[in-house]
Design a binder for these strands. Structure first.
Lengths: 133, 133, 133, 133
DNA sequence: GTGGTCTAGACCACA
DNA sequence: GTGGTCTAGACCACG
């Protein structure tokens, strides 16, 4: 898995790592069961503090994206959010509401948003929808 | 203008205020020229420190949403963003990429995102697209 | 980077800091990637309150001159302004109109202004104009 | 003399009035000896508080642009700054240094500044230069 | 009355 | 250690 971060960006480094891993999973670059680089290894690669990597992995485990197995390393789970349905729904709403509001203030029109959404959807490998449920 | 915040939320108080104002503008609840509550007034209403409101209003002015006029008050501008086209474009991409990635990890499908987008677009009063100018 | 301020001047302290940093960048005394003094350090040096430095750094970040990175420090970007062309143009006009008008009332002649402009241009390290890109 | 102000601008109203008068003088729209509108009259015209006009006229008198004669009104002087030579010089330098520095950070090149200066000089009616002195 | 600036001092998040 | 947020309270400038 290739993880790249921009040390000059305003976003905290550990969040950049978290987002990079999530992006890799979403794009299909990494799959369930894959092993993440060790904390020390990734810290060296990215030239950042190991504590920063630890914090990123903690956040990823909290979000259910990885599991940390003592001594063995960190592994990608089959993306599973263990949130209740109502909470999941609310999170999507919050994300989209924020995006739409900010885009409005940037002067975009509905069509711009729909186009941007479709472009980003194209880059993500969604799983086969489970017929019902 | 009604502004509500949640003091228990993780999001900083001043950012909650910023977003509340932006939402009000986007929904058409507040229009260009409208005056915002005074710093002291809003601070009292929300039971927060006046300086926190000041920071929120500063951020809103930075984003071109309001102007602050000493002695007179703070007013909605109605102007859009002053950013260059390339920067605007990049910001929309970042917003949408983040939303799509997070939604993927929450287990949503493309259709869920399209539906959520449309629902949120319905609540926003977009300006008439200017054909020329 | 040497930053000096005059506590007796009418100009707000944080604006003096902002201008001092911008001047250092313009003169080539400080370059992209350079780290600014930490908030506490500069506050101690200038014998002002840390919050005043924070306000200055916030303004510099708003203007795209620096990025502030939590836990790491503040760094010069080297990026230019993100403003749209029309807004950039307007700001230059406003600056120059103000200068010409005030100089007129100070009794200067056009030649004095041209000379003053050239003298100041000499002290600034302008980037190579990019022919393409 | 036509004086117009923009109540939505960030610049304080009284400063806008001051600058409008100075601009009128510089452009030759108003000449030495001309009488300014009375405080009440201008306040009514601009729909602003009379105290704001009073403050503007005080500032103009302080700058030597007008004289206020009890009972008779305010009159334009033949633009005369009573500053010492060194102080005059310093003020021009400060104005130009500020303009050049800000323009640099807006991404302009020396040629842009020279052009902007010449454009603004063209609109100002400079007096015949006194041969020596 | 309004916002603008500054100080003082606290606690938290990031590297 | 760094910056980020929040509180408390002062005094000044503008309308």
């Amino acid at each position: 898995m290739i993880i790249r971060i921009d040390p000059t960006a305003a976003e905290p480094l550990f969040e950049q790592v978290v987002f990079a891993v999530k992006t890799a999973v979403a794009r299909g670059t990494a799959k369930a069961g894959d092993r993440l680089p060790s904390v020390r290894e990734l810290a060296r690669e990215l030239a950042i503090n190991p504590n920063t990597v630890v914090r990123a992995y903690e956040a990823l485990e909290r979000d259910g994206v990885i599991v940390r197995r003592q001594g063995a390393g960190c592994f990608l789970t089959g993306r599973g959010s263990d949130l209740a349905g109502s909470e999941r729904r609310k999170q999507l709403q919050d994300l989209m509401r924020r995006t739409v509001t900010e885009a409005f203030h940037l002067g975009f029109q509905p069509e711009d948003l729909r186009k941007a959404l479709d472009q980003n959807l194209d880059q993500v490998q969604f799983p086969e929808p489970r017929s019902q449920s």
